Simulated assay, not measured.
Amino acid sequence: MRGFLYVIQFVFSIVIFSTIYAMARWQASDFTTITNGRLDELFYVAKHYPSTILVLGISFCYILFSLFLIFNHWKWRKNLNFDQKGLSHVCLGLILSSISFFFVSSFTEDPYINSREINHGTPFIYPTLFIFIYFLASLAMYSYALFKKYSRKNNRIFIFMNFLLLGISVVGEVHLVKRRLIQLGGGPSIPTSQIFNLGWFNQYTNILYFNIYTFLIGTCITLMVCGIYYSFHTRK
């Protein structure tokens, strides 16, 4: 019964978040000035209706909390073995990481926008980092148990595939950084750059740290380390 109530609470939290977000869009409907080529509706609401943004943030945290309660409900843990518990934590970390990465990307300014405002993605950076670490830790614990189920040959093939995917991800990340710097006119030390004197951590570069490539790099390294450790551990 309690698990069912947790699910109802999760659905209710999504309804609240959607309602508050719709209210924020309605409050920004009188914002007709186009700033830097786009409508910064949320920034407008944050400036003129800060309480709405505060409630919106609280409702989003409520969604995460409701989701956490579902995955950690005692009925889920009672009849699950270690592998199944690990998989549930991996799924939870994957969902939360995807949501967090999306928010960081959403609050990254486009290169063609000349903005000297503060980095609005900062409130999402540190929670995203901790959530991603939680996902990788859960993945490490689950993958170590998963390697035990397969033969050494299959594990080696899996490690090799992760190595190839890691290489592709590193190349993609390097290409993304180079392309972003070209679009911005160079690094923060170049006077003609849009990020001149802003440093590497600014509203234009959030996506360089949290994107599909960095997600795959962290995931592949975790799986490779666990696989190699298990291979050496079983030899003894």
Rank of each mutant, 00 (worst) to 15 (best):
E173I: 14
H89N: 10
F65Q: 02
I70M: 07
N155Y: 03
N154K: 04
H73F: 08
F102G: 15
K148C: 11
F160M: 00
F60G: 01
H89D: 10
I63S: 01
L165P: 02
T108Y: 10
L94W: 13
C61T: 03
G57D: 01
W76L: 11
I159T: 02
L56E: 04
W76A: 09
V170F: 05
R179H: 12
L56N: 00
F158P: 00
G172F: 07
T122M: 13
F124C: 03
F160R: 00
G93I: 01
F107Y: 07
F102K: 08
Y144I: 01
L139E: 09
S151H: 11
P50H: 12
F102L: 15
K78Y: 03
K148M: 13
R116G: 14
F147R: 08
S105M: 09
R116Y: 14
N114C: 08
N119Y: 02
I53K: 08
A140D: 02
L136S: 10
I118T: 09
M161R: 00
S98N: 05
L64I: 11
I63Y: 00
I113Y: 13
Q84A: 14
I63E: 01
S88G: 14
N119L: 05
H73I: 03
S100A: 13
I118K: 14
W76M: 06
C91G: 15
F147Y: 14
R180G: 09
V171T: 12
A137H: 11
N81I: 12
N119S: 10
V171K: 11
F147H: 08
S66F: 04
I53D: 08
S88D: 06
G57V: 01
R156Q: 11
L165V: 01
F158N: 02
Y112D: 04
N79Y: 12
F147M: 13
G121N: 02
Y150M: 06
W74I: 04
L64T: 01
C61N: 07
K149V: 15
R180L: 13
A145K: 07
L166P: 06
I125H: 06
M161F: 05
L139V: 12
N72C: 03
S115T: 03
V104T: 13
F71K: 04
F163A: 00
P127H: 05
L67Y: 09
F135A: 10
L80V: 11
I70R: 00
C91N: 11
V177H: 15
I133N: 03
S106Y: 13
S97R: 05
L136N: 13
N81Y: 14
F135K: 05
L181D: 04
I131L: 06
A145Y: 10
F101G: 02
H175V: 15
F60L: 07
G86M: 00
H120M: 09
I159R: 02
S88Q: 12
